[in-house]
């Protein structure tokens, strides 16, 4: 009970945020393509680092697939390891 009260208080101070969701789950993409750099670019920072799932809302499974795709794209110079 105490915990529940704490939680609702916490929510009061929190700003309104739209709920994040996994885009790959919503679109039911069969797999994440490493050649599709336009999609991958929305999941990396300007510097070229991958964004955490807590920021993008990607589910754990797709985050793993995304990681693999980003690494493959970097390997073949479609994405950079680091933007200067």
């Amino acid at each position: 009970m105490v915990q529940k009260g704490k939680g609702s208080e916490h929510v009061k101070y929190k700003r309104f945020m739209r709920k994040k969701f996994c885009r790959f789950c919503a679109e039911k993409t069969p797999f994440i393509d490493y050649k599709d750099t336009r999609t991958l670019k929305s999941y990396i920072t300007e510097r070229g680092k991958q964004l955490p799932s807590r920021m993008t809302g990607t589910c754990a499974r797709h985050q793993r697939e995304l990681t693999e795709a980003v690494k493959r794209a970097r390997n073949i110079a479609l994405l950079s390891f680091m933007e200067k």
């Binding site: 069969p30 797999f31 493959r72 390997n75 073949i76 110079a77």
Partner: peptide, 14 residues
């Protein structure tokens, strides 16, 4: 530079 990747089931279907 080259990269060879083995396709998985879902990729083969696509």
């Amino acid at each position: 530079k080259f990269m060879i990747i083995k396709l998985r089931k879902k990729e083969i279907i696509a």
